[in-house]
Design a protein around this nucleic acid. Structure first.
Lengths: 223, 223, 223, 223
DNA sequence: TATGAATGAGTGTTCATTCAT
DNA sequence: GATGAATGAACACTCATTCAT
């Protein structure tokens, strides 16, 4: 996870694009193992294997049935008992976060890179938002979960906001400072709006979330 | 919501009449406007009272728990037995449509009026969309239901689309013809986007759906 | 009802046979109107009309859905409110008895006639049982109700037994006295057995209740 | 029930083996006969205990309320949650078949044995029918279910007919070949009739199904 | 530590029966 | 008397979560 800054931005673009095509095996990794000392005695091998199988199964189930997929379905798909899921991920939010952590991190880290590489801050913002949309649109039910006020999703909200709001704020600020956009909107509100526009996008061929998000971003421009 | 006064009140009269045309016998006609001497076979007073209490309770429950609100909760809130709900509204879609019919009709009818009264078509569009947002923002479960692919909501979709898409299309068309906006977006997609932006708006004080919708409409403008 | 003895037996045979073909409008009549003095001031005409429509509707519903047919279905079919049913027939058993009274009476009265007309008592018994089977086989659910221990059917049991057991006993006794059959079986048990053999006979083309009943009666014969 | 001792007990061993062949994983194998050293993956002890309690409770409930007994009643009687029933027996037919499988198998297997052991085929038939009656008379709901046209019971019908009709046919055929009985009746119809005669036998002290069945079988004899 | 059996609250829906109009 | 609106008990079935093994 620390190595990732070395990966050129375009990688991320590709990554997200690949994601759209064949996501699911997104190699989620928990924070624990990216700790300080790699040679430290890692968890038992079978425990880690289970954790990985669980994440793969959950990712697959989330695609099929949304992030509300029945726990038992995920367990069956992973070839473990339901108890094992609860051991590794006490709440559903924990599981969802673990499944999508990689991609959220990648998205967060793409912000500064895009800002550095793009011709204008507004372009960087638009491209970054595209990344976020590409992510959400392919995760059925995630956008819904992000706006749900179900207490079970609190950790999920917290994680997404912690990681993405500062990045988005930086991009918005840069664009505003450059005089490209209004100062009307804070990062939280923008992300929420973009997230909402992604809801149900996968079910409805007549609805293209990307087009609407692009209009929203265009609407930010000062005239 | 203050803008709604722009829609003449008489519209509401028409409104009820239209309601009766496509009604399934549950038009939730309030006493107020049907006056005293109607030759139509009036329902029993208690039945009509219950019907109204049911609609009120359902509207409240939909806000709290979405349009999936348990039937029993609605019945309890209305102070009636569950059987009474099924008597008045055999399917859930019947109940949802009945709850929102008045406002949908009012919204639909406001379109042409606004177009006639506003300085430009784009202004009319923006004001009409405001009306729609004002409606949706207070009906939290509704926006979610409108994007759900649950078969129970098919009639709901059909009703909303039948009534609102043509109106929105007329407004979009007028604005495009006037050279004010792009032709990028069809009415269905715009309504869907606006509907999505309204999801969860009532639960989150940091999120103002109206502001985001305004940006979206601004984004339609030709530069 | 008192006139009926004047009707020759073969009438009854025809009647039952006709019943099998086109029963349903079986003209059930309550005891009340066959009282002592015809010129007495009868019930209001509409009340009697309702009663008759109810019986016709119930007979039809019993054929379609068995004697468990939903009360509201019967009411709807009769064009009356459910309350009217309960007024006329406080329990389901009352309704069933009223519907079938004519035929039960006819069957009961056929016993002595057959005994007088048949070549032997055993023949009379067999023919009388045939009458009973013909009756039951065409009344879906009735045989089931007759053996049900549901308290709602108590009156039904009582009525059937009161009317038919003595007749059957008379026939059995005559045959036993003539040395044709064993004395193993009392009338109650025989009727119960015959009733049971009729259960479900209408639903199953591979099952002919008449044939089995015939075997049972044959089994009574002394060897 | 005392005659059942005529069926050698070893049969019951065979019985269980047969059970396993066509079993859906719920063969209700008691501990007693599977001994200690079985290589098969044993179920958890509590699960097996529950399964047995469930079968006992279901058998009892079926007697009381018929095979339509409410799932929750059975669960309560067994001291388990309703979910446990659905885990073990996904459909009601599964539960019914499991409850009666042992006895149906025993009955089926008794046919050839009785034929071999009895003095005449007709005697064998009578004794076998007695076995069947002894079985049914104590399962009050069962006889009703066997004639029900409810789709939920289709598998039940199929199972009973598959197992018992061929056995009965063999016995009938032997007796007919021996010139003892008429060829009037096929095995299906006979079993259906016997089953019907058993309906409600347990509730009514004035009604002895065995006596009536004996008369029916006697009626088959050639005179 | 892993398993998956058990739990039971939650939900939609039907229908006999009562009773206000 | 007649009506039919209202009631609510009853039932099947699902699934998140706990905990004995």
């Amino acid at each position: 996870m620390n190595k990732r800054n070395a990966v050129p931005l375009r990688r991320y673009g590709t990554w997200f694009r690949l994601t759209r095509v064949s996501d699911g095996g997104n190699g989620a990794v928990t924070d624990t193992e990216s700790g300080s000392a790699q040679p430290a005695p890692q968890k038992r091998a079978d425990a880690r294997r289970n954790q990985q199988r669980l994440l793969d199964a959950a990712a697959a189930a989330f695609i099929t049935s949304g992030v509300d997929a029945p726990v038992r379905d995920i367990a069956t798909k992973a070839g473990v008992g339901v108890g094992t899921i609860y051991r590794h991920f006490p709440t559903r939010a924990d599981l969802i976060v673990a499944v999508y952590r990689h991609q959220v991190e990648a998205c967060a880290e793409a912000g500064p890179t895009l800002l550095a590489e793009s011709s204008t801050p507004h372009t960087a913002l638009a491209r970054w938002i595209d990344l976020f949309v590409d992510f959400l649109v392919t995760k059925h039910g995630l956008a819904e979960a992000l706006q749900s006020d179900d207490a079970a999703f609190e950790n999920l909200h917290a994680y997404f906001l912690d990681r993405l709001v500062p990045v988005c704020a930086q991009l918005l600020d840069a664009a505003a400072t450059a005089g490209e956009i209004v100062r009307d909107l804070d990062a939280y509100e923008l992300l929420r709006g973009v997230g909402n526009l992604c809801i149900g996008a996968g079910n409805d061929s007549r609805y293209d979330a990307r087009r609407l998000v692009a209009l929203l971003i265009a609407g930010l421009r000062l005239r």
